Amino acid sequence: MNISGNTIFIPGATSGIGLALALRLRDAGNTVIIGGRRTELLTRIVAENPGVDAVEIDTTDADSIRRAAGSVIDTHPDLNVLITMAGIMRVEDWTAPTGFVATAEETVTTNLLGPIRLIGAFIEHLQTRPDATILTVSSGLAFAPLQATPSYNATKAAIHMLSESVRLQLAGTSVKVLELVPPSVRTDLLPGQRESEFAMPLDDFVSEVVELIKSEPTATEIQVENVKFLRYGEARGNYDEVVRALNQLDPHGK
């Protein structure tokens, strides 16, 4: 992915990593459209950040995704990058008979069905662009589980394998598949995560991500240094140690 000259749609970019990355990509010389559910919040972000456009979208709703995709493509026909940023993280107790089921279903709908539907809504258009990218967002927890968030871990592992598989299918097209693998970052994804001493400062994370995109334009995964402890535990042969350390030291994960 080139660092500049793109037209980029980022649903789920009204806060946290999504918004911070949107602003950095705008500053790097891209046209950026953010997406979110709250019209008043989108209006405020656009007013405060010249050069950013916005569209209302609920990534848990298939019809909303289709409407938003049509609007974005009509307004920005040169769109060539989709970043499937929207996601949620919920603590679950699987020792309770049914208490976790609704939360797990919500997590799967948002974190897995949402990106699948987004890619489905944009893939035909992206293949008409000479140089296009789908940027998925998995997590270090795709590779080492945080005990408190089983469904989040599972959806992010699924996003990793989905990215690997779709990349193979699109190999003969103009569309690249790039996977962002965040560690724990100081956002509001979980209560208290913004204050966690184990989480990476948001500005530092986004700066390193932008630098990696710039320096490694043909990469298939964006891995900041902080995520490699989780990402490569199995390959290093110390997976059990990684899992123990993660669950003893960091109650928030990412």
Rank of each mutant, 00 (worst) to 15 (best):
L170G: 03
I65W: 15
I123P: 01
D203T: 15
L178M: 13
G16W: 00
Q248Y: 11
S139H: 03
G36Q: 03
T187R: 11
L212H: 06
L212C: 01
D204M: 06
P97I: 03
G253Q: 03
H76N: 06
S138E: 09
T107R: 03
L180G: 08
L41T: 14
P11W: 04
A245V: 05
R24W: 12
G18K: 05
E216H: 05
S71Q: 15
I45F: 02
L212W: 08
L146G: 04
G253W: 00
D78C: 09
A13L: 09
R90S: 10
I73A: 08
I3P: 13
E124H: 14
A104K: 15
T103F: 05
D250N: 07
N153Q: 12
V209F: 04
G253I: 00
L23D: 12
H76P: 09
V55Q: 12
P183F: 02
V209L: 00
G120K: 06
V185H: 00
Q169R: 10
S139L: 00
T107V: 00
K156G: 11
L41S: 13
L42C: 05
V210D: 10
R67M: 08
I134T: 12
S139N: 08
A22T: 13
V72Y: 11
T95F: 00
A20L: 12
N111E: 00
D240N: 15
E195R: 08
R44V: 02
V101H: 12
N111L: 00
L126S: 12
P183Q: 04
G35W: 11
L41K: 11
E241M: 05
R67K: 15
G99H: 06
E197W: 05
E56C: 13
R24P: 11
D188I: 03
T98R: 13
G233L: 02
V91Y: 09
M161Y: 15
M85L: 01
E164M: 15
E48H: 06
R26T: 03
Q127I: 05
Q169S: 07
V166S: 11
Y152I: 05
V72E: 05
H160F: 09
L230N: 14
E221T: 14
T128K: 14
T103S: 10
T187C: 10
T95A: 00
Q248A: 14
R244Q: 05
P130V: 07
V137T: 01
V185N: 01
G18V: 04
R186E: 11
E164P: 14
E216N: 03
L112F: 02
A54N: 08
G16I: 04
M1Y: 07
I134G: 07
L190C: 02
R66M: 06
I57P: 12
D131T: 10
R90W: 10
S64E: 10
G172P: 00
P191V: 02
Q193M: 13
I8F: 10
D250Y: 04
A28Y: 12
T187Q: 06
L162R: 07
L112V: 03
M200K: 07
V32N: 14
G99I: 07
T95K: 10
G120S: 10
G114P: 09
I34Q: 09
T103C: 03
I73L: 05
S64G: 07
G87L: 00
R194M: 06
G99D: 08
V101Q: 04
I10H: 03
I33H: 06
S196T: 12
G172H: 02
V81S: 07
T84F: 02
